[in-house]
Design a protein around this nucleic acid. Sequence first.
DNA 1: GACATATATTTGCCTTGACAAATATACTTC
DNA 2: GAAGTATATTTGTCAAGGCAAATATATGTC
Lengths: 152, 152
Amino acid sequence: MNPDSLAFSTRKESLGVLLGLVRTEIVRAMEAELAANGVDLRFTQFLILKRLARLGPMSASELARSVELDGGAMTRQLDQLEHKGYLRRCPHEQDRRALRIELTAAGDALWQQLTDCNDRVLAAAQRSLDSTEQAQLHDYLERVLHALRDKN
Amino acid sequence: MNPDSLAFSTRKESLGVLLGLVRTEIVRAMEAELAANGVDLRFTQFLILKRLARLGPMSASELARSVELDGGAMTRQLDQLEHKGYLRRCPHEQDRRALRIELTAAGDALWQQLTDCNDRVLAAAQRSLDSTEQAQLHDYLERVLHALRDKN
DNA sequence: GACATATATTTGCCTTGACAAATATACTTC
DNA sequence: GAAGTATATTTGTCAAGGCAAATATATGTC
């Protein structure tokens, strides 16, 4: 294998791998930032609180779809977050199968810190891209996502 | 929260999430493609074989660093791949602590199929990007990765 | 060469998330 | 309204990967 074809295939191969690396680093950076601020949350738990803070109360399955998490995994994350006092499981008014998950006062208060952590990490991650490039990156990723999901 | 700020924060928030979604889809597509070709391999195992095929024999820890996998996890993946007959653990010639992991003939043969699967999935994923955009996507991802790793 | 430190591999433990089964409730059709 | 189908939540099971400890061997210092 000559150097050129090696470089070429290395470049191509990396997409799946590269995405994993970047995501791992973002998660790591985010969790480090949370820990540095004395917040004991994993990335997934942070995402759940974020959805609730931004979109308001919703059912557990809506929440699960919203963060692309398995329903079973969601149940266990809710257990932890409820135990920590950041959210509450209330009965759903229209649907007795479902829950209405809502933030507690402590959960609302926590979100003030989280939003700062979030912004700092994203800013750090994208600091070498100008705003046009950031928008392009986002656009490209969404197009790749759609290409993979709409298989035709 | 007004619609604009919602749109803005949704856009910003997605980077970490979006990366995860895209990666998940690529892994899923890759594993589906492998299964469709009668190859019983997970994405991680595919990556390991790929490194060995491309870069030749190396030690387990070199391999682990190369695919960013924990050393303990690598031991177990090697167990499986060795059991399936695709690679061999040989003694390392210079270092008696280490192993020399090398593909068997079956592993080499398998790689012929894998390289096609790989190309098909990557082509499908990036089919909505022209070659300039593909290069930009790659470039942006690497810049984000470096920004996250070089914390200063 | 003895000793301290660093690295390679393996193993045990733990958490996470996917998947499937169980149960409860909603919805649709007749 | 009875029956069949779909959805919400919970729980059990499993595989994967991170981390730490144990062991073996290298490497650097005196």
